[in-house]
Design a binder for these strands. Structure first.
Lengths: 226, 226
DNA sequence: AGAATACTTCATTCTATATTTAACTATGAA
DNA sequence: TTCATAGTTAAATATAGAATGAAGTATTCT
């Protein structure tokens, strides 16, 4: 028990491997080469480290042609990295601005592969309030009206249900400490919003930005003032 | 941002320091010597490592005579260690037993310094159900009837309120993924139950066991079947 | 006061393992 | 079919930083 804990801690503890984990935190899958660039080291070295992380089951790979895509093997791994990221004192981006003007872009984070942060939580709240999803014990379920809503939003629920991974699941966000939506539905919502340019990923950070269009549309669809 | 993350990961990543964190996970404060025994290394070495953990604000100390008591500096630190502990595959203690007989002791864990695990969650549920505590946004509050209940249970609320630390706060348990009670009230409840021999700490593990007396009393006070 | 305990500091030694160098396989592009 | 790209493996090297040894301070016990 203890030795397994120490082993896991040591695996994440190395600087290069920590850089890998940090990069993977935004939920996307990265190739070995991309990770070597992100971690600022050689391909051979990254390959060695990835092998160790795979061996320990912290990551998993998917081969596509000559590329290999690495991602967290489980939600639990992402939690560890998130919890660690939360040790870092927050920069308080908003408090710097003293005037009432909304900043042009606002930040949220992607947690593993679904929306988290303030937006993710507000989104979950809104869907619950509108009875599009309903809480049932420990899980979220989609109501009959909700099914129509998702279809209007351009999300094919049948398709989502076919996927192996959990369909709809509350997931705790570390910064807000409240549940937001994860599972395949969470990913689909995130992708749809990216597709429609409501939100954009940033190049080298885990933050995503909300566009002007997104601001308007979110107010309209979710009654969220971002 | 990234370098701070890597630094934090590296701090926990060393074997000796990981052993320290693992030991501290049960919420008690330990002296340097105790930690050196737990981590199986020399006092000088543990001193060096503790200095690093202090410097990085992961731990804090309290001096009492010639002893120094070390503990996690914040809840966030405990979360990291808990999340890591959750990477370890669970032994499935119950599934080994095929018959319907309850095992003589049942395990729960102490999270930082309050009750967690199945018991902690069930306890929180029960207190909520009995309206002893009530949910209010993100916090728990004690109702008027609740005040009487706590006093009957032998917990002095005035005393608890005097303490600096947060009085009553929901805290997410990693294994159950539901809120249980933390804060000074959580600690007081835990201590009271230890005192009355409802539960006992085990020597070298983070598990605590429920006594026969505890089983009966919990059913009576909290309507929990353990 | 003197001895024992708890803990720290610093200079030195040591060692685990990260990185590099070099050579290799597999896939895709020209 | 040749070249370039993506990734791996293995042996050699380098080095950060963990552990040790020796000597110190502060506190408590008798």
């Amino acid at each position: 028990m203890e030795d397994q804990f120490i082993k896991a801690a040591g695996l994440i503890g190395d600087a290069t491997r920590a850089a890998i984990m940090w990069t993977l935190l935004d939920g996307r899958a990265f190739t070995a080469t991309e990770l070597s660039i992100a971690a600022n080291t050689s391909p051979q070295n990254i390959s060695m480290h990835l092998a160790k992380l795979l061996e320990a089951n912290l990551l998993c790979v998917e081969k596509q042609g000559r590329h290999k895509y690495y991602r967290f093997s489980s939600r639990e791994v992402a939690y560890v990295v998130e919890a660690m990221a939360n040790l870092i004192p927050k920069p308080e981006i908003f408090s710097q601005k003293k005037n009432e003007n909304y900043p042009p872009v606002k930040y949220c984070r992607t947690c593993y592969d679904h929306l988290a942060g303030k937006i993710g939580v507000a989104l979950a709240d809104s869907l619950l309030k509108q009875k599009i999803i309903i809480e049932n014990g420990n899980t979220f379920e989609i109501s009959t009206e909700g099914e129509k809503w998702f279809s209007d939003f351009g999300i094919n629920l049948e398709e989502a249900q076919k996927q192996k991974r959990i369909f709809l699941k509350p997931c705790l966000d570390w910064s807000e400490r409240r549940y937001h939506i994860s599972g395949s539905i969470g990913t689909l919502l995130l992708n749809k919003m990216l597709e429609q340019d409501w939100i954009r990923r940033t190049a080298n950070s885990r933050a995503i930005i909300i566009t002007g269009k997104g601001e308007k549309e979110m107010l309209k669809s979710f009654k969220i003032v971002v």
